[in-house]
Simulated scan of single mutants.
Amino acid sequence: MLVKVFASFGLLICLALAVHMCLGRHQRLWLETRLTRAWQGLRQRLERRFSARERRRAAHEAALEAIERAKRGSGGGGNVEGQWDGNVYRPKRFEKPPK
Rank of each mutant, 00 (worst) to 15 (best):
W30V: 04
G75Q: 10
L12G: 00
H60N: 06
R55F: 09
F94M: 08
D85G: 05
L64N: 09
L64Y: 03
Q83C: 15
N79Y: 01
P97S: 14
V5R: 15
R56I: 05
F94K: 15
L12V: 00
L11I: 05
A70P: 14
R55W: 07
W39C: 11
L42K: 01
R28W: 02
Q44T: 04
P98I: 15
P91Q: 12
A52L: 02
E95D: 04
R55M: 01
W84D: 12
Q40K: 06
S74C: 03
R53D: 08
S51L: 10
G77H: 00
T36A: 15
G77R: 07
E61C: 08
R43L: 14
P97M: 09
L2A: 02
A16W: 01
A7T: 00
H20A: 09
K92H: 10
R25P: 14
A7P: 00
R57Y: 05
R48L: 08
K4G: 11
L29D: 13
E47S: 06
V5T: 06
G86I: 01
E47A: 13
E68D: 07
A58N: 12
E68A: 06
R45S: 06
L12M: 15
T36F: 08
R45H: 01
R57P: 03
M21Q: 02
V88G: 10
A58F: 09
L35V: 07
R93D: 05
R28S: 10
R90A: 03
K96R: 12
R34C: 00
S8D: 01
L31D: 07
K99M: 06
G10F: 01
A18M: 01
Q83I: 08
Q40I: 04
P91L: 14
L2Q: 11
F9C: 03
R37Y: 02
A16M: 11
A62V: 09
G75C: 15
F9Y: 11
L15R: 06
R90I: 13
I13F: 14
L29N: 05
F6G: 11
G73Y: 02
L29V: 10
R90T: 03
A52M: 07
P97C: 10
L64Q: 08
L15F: 04
L23V: 00
Q44W: 09
E65F: 03
A52H: 09
A52E: 07
W30C: 07
R34L: 14
L12A: 13
A59I: 04
F6V: 10
A16D: 06
L64A: 14
G73N: 09
R37M: 11
S74K: 13
A52F: 04
G76N: 09
R90N: 06
H26L: 05
I67R: 05
G75F: 14
G24A: 11
H26I: 03
N87H: 10
K99H: 00
G86V: 12
R53G: 02
L17C: 04
H26M: 10
S51T: 01
R45C: 01
Q83A: 13
R37E: 11
R43C: 08
R43N: 10
F9E: 13
E61W: 06
H60D: 00
